[in-house]
Design a protein around this nucleic acid. Structure first.
Lengths: 149, 149
DNA sequence: TATTGTTATACTCTATAACTATA
DNA sequence: TATAGTTATAGAGTATAACAATA
């Protein structure tokens, strides 16, 4: 009867709305902090993955190495992240959050936490797992798409 | 013992990763279709909300009315959406997807559907509800943030 | 030779402000 | 007067390409 299909369609629709809400959230955080959208994405990546090489960070964000240079310049001038030397490879700069960058991340953490307010607390652990599975699959899917343009 | 807190923290972390994956997905769709990021966001909004006024669409995307004009100009020149007259208010232009715009949405629908591949099918209906709840709360939260800058 | 990052230049997209047309 | 959209101009952010330093 196509029940499976309509269930999947509904899930896709919800995911689409969530992605749009995430992009809206990103703009709101950027507006709130006075940073740009890409800057706040970078802070979020650094919070999740820990310190990254400058180009590695740019690759995660989908920008070129020259744009990465400009991005980290802005992050440093705004005091939310900083370069430091890679131990053992003098070509590389690693990037880490400053205390002020951590503050921004913590603030956005609280805002994200509030968005779970309507979710029943006993479903939260399973939901966290599902969100991560979707994120990982979506990332893999996007990378496959990008690799054959 | 802080168990509730750590469960919530883990959920927030998963949501953060999912938002980043969504932004990565957006870039991949833009690259694949040859459209810009904002264009593909607009197509997604039109798919979810149905036809919208030009400025209304821009407001959803967080851009100004002049940027909306330029955006819809691009959507039209690329053949994925089109203006049509509002019946009864000659100031307004409504925007709708073209057949080609629908094709883009359908293609991205399939990509999104694939990202549910690792989710157990019996959890899918409840998951769809949770995703929508999170999206709605996140959107409301972001609007609250934006209204006091 | 390959990799990491920087600089110079051009392009795309968006914001601000002034304007037209309609309600 | 207020609203929907357009145009002109300026600015932010990114891409491309050429380059320097290190592996």
């Amino acid at each position: 009867m196509g029940g499976d299909q309509s269930v999947l369609d509904e899930a896709v629709r919800s995911l689409r709305v969530l992605i749009l809400a995430g992009e809206n959230y990103r703009q709101a955080v950027a507006l709130w902090t006075g940073l740009g959208v890409t800057e706040t994405q970078a802070l979020s990546y650094l919070a999740v993955h820990g310190d990254l090489g400058q180009n590695q960070l740019g690759a995660e964000l989908g920008i070129t190495s020259s744009a990465s240079t400009a991005l980290v310049d802005r992050l440093e001038s705004q005091g939310v992240a900083e370069r430091y030397a890679h131990p053992g490879d003098r070509r590389r700069s690693l990037v880490r959050l400053t205390t002020r960058g951590d503050d921004v991340v913590q603030q956005s953490h609280d805002w994200l936490a509030a968005s779970f307010g309507e979710v029943a607390s006993d479903t939260l652990p399973g939901l966290a797992v599902s969100l991560r599975q979707i994120a990982d699959s979506l990332r893999a899917q996007s990378d496959r798409m990008s690799s054959r343009p």
